[in-house]
Design a protein around this nucleic acid. Structure first.
Lengths: 175, 175
DNA sequence: AACGGATCGTTGGATATCCTACCATCCCCG
DNA sequence: CGGGGATGGTAGGATATCCAACGATCCGTT
């Protein structure tokens, strides 16, 4: 849900070679493209890393129904049965309007249920169906493998430090 | 260019508090939302970190003309006068079709020039104008400040290690 | 009991992305 | 020299995002 659907359409293929080399190899006889200061700027590298990671996860999951964005929705609903759309959006880091078509799609596929709690007819209580649990189980394997692949690159000994840095960025960069 | 224009519209305001707390604080009397395994999954954290960093940079720059995506385009063109659109897209990690409207806009604003090299009338040679250089100069200050803010969170002593991890992810996650 | 402010979720619109197909151009090979 | 494959860039379409505004509902205050 956080990226366009290119990954869904590309997933039937084996993952492509990385789209970008930081030290750009140009065609024979040409100089490589210089990135200037971008090559060491943390924001730019974060973007490239995130997109590469996202692409790789999408490659693993392979089907539109199992796109990374849907995965995080299913995980959060599974962990919080009865959660509202507003709370889900906040937890997933997504605008509530972004969730409207995504949840409609998951409901249509039979992966979740949206019930009107009698005490608040404005909102929905979201829960996974049995089918949804099964689909999520399949996704968890992909997610675990993806996480292991990322951890291999980070270095297992450095994982905790890396996570701590990401959390500090998440919590602190807007201040 | 890597994210929707929400940031452009929001930039006139002071940056909002972070949209997401990893340990979600719920309304009084409610339990916080549980992230389940997402809270420690590297892919999810990378996404949140990247979006938070992007939001923060967009907040600094403030105007649509100076959006982060345009910044990377200007930096790369500045470092590679005469670069083609195809090479620029590859360096920026963007599809060439994504660049078409962005470059048209930059040209319209007088920040770049697109010339037809006589030896290859299929392509364009992209260069910054004097106005483009000036706009880029202003952006560099924002970018440097943003990078410093990120470095403060990463920890100056850990910056090189963090960059190395991001590069390994960029280069290696798709393999 | 009624009113006004707040909230939940949806809709419409805008922006940004990529993929595929196409046209114009280039270049290499037979 | 000509043809065919490749390349540069654009257009159309699909997907995903957020913002603002709206209708329905909730709740607190008077």
């Amino acid at each position: 849900m956080s990226q366009p659907a290119r990954k869904a359409r590309r997933m039937a293929e084996a993952p492509a070679a990385p789209r970008l080399a930081l030290a750009h190899e140009a065609p024979a006889g040409q100089l490589p493209v210089q990135l200037g200061p971008l090559g060491v700027q943390l924001g730019f590298l974060l973007r490239l890393a995130q997109e590469a990671a996202f692409d790789a996860f999408a490659a693993r999951t392979g089907q539109a129904a199992l796109r990374p964005g849907r995965y995080s929705i299913l995980v959060i609903i599974a962990a919080n049965p009865g959660i509202s759309q507003t709370a889900l959006g906040a937890a997933a880091g997504r605008d509530k309007s972004t969730l409207t078509p995504a949840l409609a799609d998951l409901e249509r596929r039979g992966l979740i249920r949206r019930d009107r709690p009698p005490q608040d007819r404005r909102s929905y209580a979201l829960t996974l169906t049995e089918v949804g649990r099964q689909v999520l189980e399949g996704l968890r394997h992909h997610a675990a493998a993806h996480d292991a692949a990322l951890e291999a690159l980070v270095g297992p000994a450095d994982r905790a430090a890396f996570v701590a840095v990401l959390r500090r960025i998440i919590q602190g960069i807007g201040a």
